[in-house]
Amino acid sequence: MLTLSGVTKRYPTGDRALTDIELTLPKGQVMALIGPSGAGKSTLIRCVNRLVEPTQGSIRLEETEITRLSGNALRQARRSMGMIFQEYALVDRLTVMENVLSGRLGYVGFWRSFLRRYPQDAVTEAFRLLERVGLPHAIDKRADALSGGQRQRVGIARALLQSPKLLLVDEPTASLDPKTSRQIMRLIRELCAERGLAAIINIHDVTLAQQFADRIVGLRAGEIVFDGLPSELTSEILTTIYGEEDWDTTPEPMDDDVSDDSISHPPYAREVPGLAAGGAR
């Protein structure tokens, strides 16, 4: 359903964030994208909906070539890709309902959205989604009055109101505690199953990725170094992706640096030469 071929991103500073990415995502598959900070995970996700412009390569969503779209056509393509953010990215001063309804912006005209006169079915659906994520009582609360987990739920409802075919999820749990993280991942997983959505989930937490994804792709220094089932992810492969570490005694990599939207120099570049098993397909 989503096909990336030869996708490369080079920032104006000269840093290469992504090199020649080849990736195919079938319908309904939940894929976890793991890798160290600065490996290009966020860049990859943002290239798909063109929040970041890829330098080269083609990205096809079903039959549409996304890299060549502009204006209205790009808006329509973005509509079919819901995005969920690390810091929730809600508009703090709007109410929860307004935040959820903003998922419909791609469908309504400017004046309708300006006057908040959304069509009846959009409102019904928005409320149903809020009930689904467990926040029907919060409709009139301001987004900044919610806790982290609640905000992420609102973010999920907003993404789903777009009626997307694909979910792009950028570090959904990085700002949440372990319990809430699991709840959020389970919710995303369930919603994908209910609606037959494909999803790309950037995630730092390898354990969560193994538990909730159908497939895991490992990214290092802008290249795919692993692509396989969660069960195939061994300590050797983790070493390939993240660098040397005693993986068996510390199952979760401790990665404090949550932001990796700008490409920095991968810390282990010189230590591990070459690609390991399960490399790019």
Partner: peptide, 9 residues
């Protein structure tokens, strides 16, 4: 960024 990602004008 989030609002642009919804396909808003």
């Amino acid at each position: 960024e989030a609002i642009s990602a919804t396909g808003a004008s």
